[in-house]
Measured scan of single mutants.
Amino acid sequence: WIARINAAVRAYGLNYSTFINGLKKAGIELDRKILADMAVRDPQAFEQVVNKVKEALQV
């Protein structure tokens, strides 16, 4: 799951650890299995999560 998430978030200019930190700051409580599945099956929803994380990180 970690490898999938890392590959997906790198397309948005983040790395895995920064993304996970941003999830916590944004108050998003999705587990890694769901995030990895979302990255593959629903990229639009995953992009929305990434955008919320970037807002929380102020990137």
Rank of each mutant, 00 (worst) to 15 (best):
D31M: 15
I20Y: 04
E29D: 14
E47G: 05
G13D: 08
N6C: 14
S17P: 08
L57V: 07
A26I: 07
A7D: 15
F19L: 04
E29G: 11
R41K: 10
L23I: 12
P43Q: 07
K52Y: 07
D42H: 13
G27M: 10
G27F: 07
L57D: 04
V49C: 07
N21C: 14
P43Y: 05
N6I: 02
S17A: 08
E55L: 10
V50A: 04
V40Y: 15
I2N: 01
A45E: 08
V40R: 07
A39I: 14
A8Y: 04
V53M: 04
D31G: 08
Q58C: 13
A3F: 02
D42R: 10
I2M: 03
A45F: 10
N51F: 15
I28K: 02
I5P: 00
K54W: 08
V53C: 13
V50S: 01
W1I: 15
Y12P: 00
I28Q: 07
N6Y: 01
G22R: 02
E55V: 14
K24Y: 11
Y16G: 10
G27P: 02
A26V: 07
A26F: 03
A26K: 03
V53A: 13
A56F: 07
K24R: 06
R4V: 15
A36C: 08
R41P: 02
V40S: 13
A45L: 08
E55Y: 09
Y16W: 02
K24T: 06
V59T: 13
N15G: 06
A45R: 10
A11L: 09
Y12F: 07
M38A: 03
G27I: 06
F19V: 01
G13C: 11
N15L: 04
Y16H: 03
V9H: 00
A3L: 04
D37W: 09
A45C: 11
V9R: 00
I5Q: 00
L23C: 10
K24E: 08
A11K: 14
A39W: 05
L14N: 00
A56L: 08
L23Q: 02
V50Y: 02
L14H: 01
Q44N: 10
F19H: 00
I2S: 00
G13Y: 03
A39R: 02
A39M: 09
K33I: 10
I2A: 02
E55S: 13
L30H: 05
A8W: 03
D42W: 09
N15C: 14
R10T: 13
I28R: 03
A56C: 09
N51I: 14
A3P: 04
Q44F: 12
W1P: 15
A26W: 03
N21I: 12
L35T: 03
L14Q: 01
I5K: 00
W1S: 15
F46C: 03
G22S: 03
E55A: 09
L14D: 01
D31H: 15
K54I: 10
K54E: 04
K52M: 14
K52C: 12
R4M: 15
R32Y: 13
G22N: 03
V9D: 00
W1E: 15
M38C: 12
Q58S: 10
V40A: 13
A36V: 07
M38D: 02
A8Q: 04
V59D: 11
M38Y: 07
L35K: 01
M38R: 02
N21H: 13
E55K: 11
A56R: 08
R41G: 11
V53W: 01
V53F: 01
Q58I: 09
R4P: 02
K33E: 11
D42K: 11
D37L: 08
K25P: 05
K25T: 09
L30F: 11
M38E: 02
A11S: 06
E29R: 14
A3G: 05
L14C: 04
A56S: 07
I20V: 09
A7F: 07
N15V: 09
D31E: 09
I2K: 09
K54D: 01
E47T: 07
Y16E: 01
A3R: 09
D31F: 14
L23P: 00
F19A: 01
F46K: 00
R32P: 15
A56H: 07
N51P: 00
I34C: 15
A3T: 06
A8F: 02
Q44K: 14
I2R: 13
L30K: 08
Q44R: 08
W1K: 15
A45T: 10
A8D: 01
L30Q: 13
D31C: 13
F19T: 00
K54T: 07
F19R: 00
A45P: 02
G27D: 07
W1A: 15
V9S: 02
P43M: 07
E55G: 12
V59M: 05
R32K: 12
M38T: 04
A8S: 04
Y16T: 03
R32H: 13
I28H: 04
D42A: 08
F19D: 00
K24W: 08
E55I: 12
V50H: 01
R32G: 15
Q48Y: 06
F46R: 00
D37K: 12
A7Y: 06
K52V: 10
V49F: 05
S17G: 07
L14A: 01
L57N: 07
A3H: 05
I28M: 14
K52P: 01
A26E: 04
R41C: 15
F46T: 00
L30D: 06
V40L: 07
Q48A: 14
R32S: 14
M38L: 11
L30M: 15
T18K: 12
N21D: 07
A56G: 07
L57T: 09
Y12T: 02
K25N: 06
D37S: 06
V9A: 09
L30E: 13
A3Q: 14
A8C: 04
V50G: 01
N21W: 11
K52T: 11
V59H: 10
A26T: 14
D37M: 12
A3I: 06
P43H: 08
R4C: 15
F19S: 00
D37I: 07
K25D: 06
K52S: 06
Y16M: 01
A7G: 04
K52E: 13
G22A: 04
I5N: 00
V50T: 04
N6M: 03
N6F: 01
L30S: 07
G13H: 11
K54A: 04
K54S: 06
V49P: 00
W1M: 15
A11Q: 13
A3C: 15
Y16L: 04
A36L: 11
A39N: 05
A45S: 12
N6P: 00
M38H: 03
E29N: 12
N15F: 05
K25A: 12
I20E: 09
W1R: 15
L30G: 05
V59W: 06
F46A: 00
D37Q: 07
N51A: 08
N15S: 09
L35R: 01
K25V: 12
K25C: 11
I34S: 09
N15I: 08
K33T: 04
A11P: 15
V50P: 00
A11M: 13
Y12K: 03
N51E: 11
G22H: 03
W1H: 15
A11H: 08
G13V: 01
K54R: 10
A8I: 03
A26R: 04
A45G: 11
L57A: 08
R41H: 12
D37V: 08
R10Y: 05
Q48L: 14
N6L: 02
N21T: 11
I28N: 03
V49Y: 07
E29S: 12
D31Y: 10
Y16A: 11
E55R: 08
E55T: 12
A3W: 04
V59N: 09
S17W: 15
I5E: 00
N15D: 07
L57W: 06
E47M: 07
L35G: 01
E47V: 11
P43D: 05
L57Y: 07
A36P: 05
V40W: 12
S17E: 10
Q44C: 14
V53R: 01
R4G: 02
R32V: 15
V50D: 01
E47Q: 10
I34T: 12
L14K: 00
Y12N: 02
N51D: 10
Q48T: 05
N51K: 12
I20A: 09
A8G: 02
D42I: 08
W1V: 15
A39D: 04
A8V: 03
N15W: 05
I5H: 00
I2V: 07
N21A: 14
A56Y: 05
A45K: 12
Q44G: 12
Q48R: 12
I20M: 15
A36H: 08
G13W: 03
Y16S: 03
V59I: 07
V59P: 13
A36D: 02
N21F: 10
